[in-house]
Design a protein around this nucleic acid. Structure first.
Lengths: 193, 193
DNA sequence: TGTTGTTAATTGATCAATCAGTCAAGAATA
DNA sequence: TATTCTTGACTGATTGATCAATTAACAACA
């Protein structure tokens, strides 16, 4: 029963289905057919709206990138100090939506995809860059020139926690994750004069 | 011109070729044919010696796991104190062989594979577990009960550095990597009483 | 030494399965 | 009717895996 203005609905459904499928299989090696079926449409329709598998995957990446961006902006909006902004950034990176089993396995797969796909690498670099500049902006008033190094370490630690969470097979522990990174931040700030 | 005793030679050649191919493509999505050609043998021979693609990939994982284990053991052998042993472990994880573009992209792919393959997950957990217990053993005399948390953070940071190195596309900077982790260790030890 | 049988090593050819992408035609709405 | 939406059916290409057949090394023996 075709209706008017289905494009947006279908695209969103297909992106959601792609993310589900990636998580379910733990790999980007999902067929367009599996994604389409999950979205309740035909393979041909997926191609019709996205042109090809590659573009569908990239759209799924962009979706998560946007979600994370929104979470960070929302969390930092109410922060009243540089220190509070740092905590808000960290907290947003580990919030319920980002630090879930499904999202984690998708990010992990995107990282691997980036090794062989220039567009995917570009998208991931946006994430890295954005996190980095957000952190540095908040760190500089507190630690000056050390901001860059500390930001890099925080970023690596966050990514590492994601990586290991994906491997553990256990339910993500947001509190422990935040505590680990916050502890590092505290030590880094204390180490500054 | 078949000779006797080729099995060991062929297996090593195929494992090496698999690692090269994985790095070259940046993905585990390499065909048995590509690997076999790189090793200078036929597809059928690869199957003959490894049973199937899965086993060949797992053998390649085991190879890196062994190499890393040897590097750590060799580095810690001469360490005269718990603190020195920690540095030796970190240094080994970032030595020339481990922290190379080829090895990094392989590890990254293995992490993803572990999400959908129980045997691969088991192998990776060996690595995580071994690093963890090595670190804790050396940390406990220095920081007591905080050892477990610090070890987890060090492990996450190491993995995170690998992850980001894979994405950067630049030549690995071992010195900077070691400095970042060592700096965290220093802060953690100073934070102990 | 020459002959013969046995085992190890290796491959070309091929199969069955899977998949991304295409297209023309059908169905619903305006 | 024109437009939008949707799909079944199909294809060209790829891939992991299999297997019968070939070649060479080796061993026992005459």
């Amino acid at each position: 029963m075709p209706k008017i203005g289905m494009e947006k609905i279908r695209r969103e459904a297909l992106i959601g289905a792609a993310l589900q499928a990636i998580h379910a299989k733990g790999s980007l090696d999902v067929t367009v057919g599996q994604i389409a079926t999950r979205a309740g449409v035909s393979t041909a329709l997926a191609h019709h709206y996205f042109g090809g598998k590659e573009d569908l995957i990239l759209a799924a990446m962009r979706f998560h990138l946007t979600q994370l961006g929104l979470a960070v902006r929302s969390a930092t909006a109410t922060a009243q100090s540089p220190r509070a902004r740092i905590s808000a950034i960290i907290s947003a990176n580990f919030d319920e939506n980002q630090f879930s089993a499904e999202t984690i396995s998708c990010w992990l797969n995107f990282y691997v995809k980036a090794q062989g796909s220039a567009p995917a690498a570009r998208l991931l670099r946006i994430y890295v860059q954005r996190l980095r500049s957000n952190l540095i902006a908040s760190l500089r008033p507190l630690v000056g020139a050390r901001a860059a190094n500390i930001a890099a370490a925080i970023g690596a630690m966050i990514d590492g926690v994601y990586l290991r969470q994906g491997l553990s097979g256990q339910a993500p522990d947001r509190v422990a994750a935040v505590r680990m990174v916050e502890n590092f931040v505290e030590m880094s700030l204390r180490g500054a004069q």
